[in-house]
Design a protein around this nucleic acid. Sequence first.
DNA 1: TATATTAACGACACGGTGTCGATAATACAA
DNA 2: TTGTATTATCGACACCGTGTCGTTAATATA
Lengths: 203, 203
Amino acid sequence: MSKKMDPRVIRTRQLLRDALVELIDEQGYEKITVQDITQRATLNRATFYLHYRDKLDLLYQSSEETLHELVNSIHPTFEEKKDFDLLPNYEQPHETFMHLFEQIGLNSKLYKVYLTEKNIPYFSGGLKDIIIDFVSSGIQFMEPNDQKLTVPREMAVRFYAAAFLEVIVWWLENDMPYTPKFMATQLMRITIKGPYIDNPFQQ
Amino acid sequence: MSKKMDPRVIRTRQLLRDALVELIDEQGYEKITVQDITQRATLNRATFYLHYRDKLDLLYQSSEETLHELVNSIHPTFEEKKDFDLLPNYEQPHETFMHLFEQIGLNSKLYKVYLTEKNIPYFSGGLKDIIIDFVSSGIQFMEPNDQKLTVPREMAVRFYAAAFLEVIVWWLENDMPYTPKFMATQLMRITIKGPYIDNPFQQ
DNA sequence: TATATTAACGACACGGTGTCGATAATACAA
DNA sequence: TTGTATTATCGACACCGTGTCGTTAATATA
């Protein structure tokens, strides 16, 4: 779709999106104005309204595009390995987890700002929804009925989805101190084995 | 400290805080203005500025007060049972968890709005910090050194803190379908046993 | 180089903000 | 019950960011 677009439009929108990320990083989302954004992007303020309705719309469209890219980069892996093998190979990093961390790492500036700055609408919720889908599919594959779940299905899905998202945020806050492969492995371990090794109460 | 205050001040501030919760629930945080809040509270707009700097300040002070009440209601239990017994009695509900759910249930309207509405500053982060302290203490007691942890300590703390918070949010979103005792028990089970019962890979 | 598309620019009314001074209402203590 | 201090009310003000004009300038592409 971007092939049909005037290159100036692409340039303008990218300038605005980059300016938004920079300014959120510097001042926080709440404080910045459309004036600030266009000034940073070296564009006239009226130009802004040719492309976006307001500040929130710019953030929303930027978030949507980024998250769509993420889903598209993960989906192939997701389809190939229909069995998920979430449990059996729990000492191996899960491939979807790895792709998740890798893709985020490729765009870490934006992810870090959008996920760690306070009061950013949409983005965290959107990523959480993506992770909820992934977790839900995984648990659905492992346990199609609810008999062998320790807690209600919905509760478990939300529990692990939020936990995974938080680990991603932690990873970004600390400037990605571990590799995607290591992170994916760790998530598998803590999910399956819990917090403690050799826990006698575990089974 | 509230004993020294003029009852009119207490009344005014309570009116403003209640109006804030109502309006966030009805329109969302972003949309509402100081005008809206004072109109709903049947106060003059200038009166607002005698008590709060702006909309964010009102939200912040309201959040702080609510979270302080929560910590105070939990802290006694926290001190009494220094051993935490997080693991040994994992089929029993953890007392601090129970008090957490009970206290939230007593003020559920505010908690539900502040935790489930989008783009509410401060509150979620503040509650998460409280839970992080709790989780961190629990893990510190169980495993003072990092030898027997399945993943880096900081990662585990954030993992479970975010998971617990999400379950609280889930509970509120669904209008508290289970008792605090049941919720506390479920959190213990999923934390210690993981998602699946009789999981052969668990030990 | 011609043409169509888009950006730049200046200006405008609008609405919410934060503050002010003067007046009215109210709690509490004498 | 009355006096006093505190607080709320009220109307008004300048300020700032917003969203939208119409006109002019710049630029990509054929």
